[in-house]
Nucleic acid binder design. Structure first.
Lengths: 86, 86
DNA sequence: ATAGTATTTAGATACTTTTCTAAATAGAGT
DNA sequence: ACTCTATTTAGAAAAGTATCTAAATACTAT
């Protein structure tokens, strides 16, 4: 975690779209992948980066992996942006 | 401009540092470059990206180019972050 | 045990970004 | 006009990121 990892994570449109989707509620990896014209492997890679940056967390259930949004991480970024231009 | 350009611009630590420096007041390209262990050409490249994304603006005076922070661009990003996690 | 589904990991390739050096531009002062 | 300083642009090399396909893992259900 840290500012750099967070900002890098948010710098890709696919990853921002994933977060927006998860804002509406928990989703499985497959449901998330279905939104994109990308292989599941690629979406899995993006999920991994978001998870590493702390934006999402996962839990297994049956043979699905559910992802959910983790809002606490946004605070540092918001603080930084507010200090600069908010 | 647009979300993608803004986020990409903020995704690099050098560029974030430049914005922080400019928060304290207008600076010339040279003064900004002096903060980094990078060539002036490289810093100039980062300034160009920040300018294109609308985060900074420039004006010439003698043979210096002064850069200054442009806070209005932060609003879209703040809105997006607030909607998601704020 | 086997077969099927969901997802990730590995390795390769293509693309993008960052950085450098050298050359170009522009303006200031002599 | 010439020289000096400030800065940018061009082109190339290096590093980093996104993507794919194929193989691996893990769990379910028969």
């Amino acid at each position: 975690m840290g500012m750099n990892e967070s900002m890098k994570a948010l710098s890709d449109p696919v990853r921002r779209h994933i977060l927006e989707k998860l804002k509406a509620g928990t989703r499985t990896a497959g449901e998330i992948a279905a939104d994109f014209d990308l292989s599941n492997a690629t979406v899995s890679y993006h999920l991994k980066l978001l998870k590493q940056a702390g934006f999402i967390s996962e839990h297994k259930e049956k043979n699905f992996i559910y992802y959910e949004l983790n809002t606490t991480v946004f605070e540092d970024i918001l603080r930084w942006l507010h200090r600069l231009g908010g």
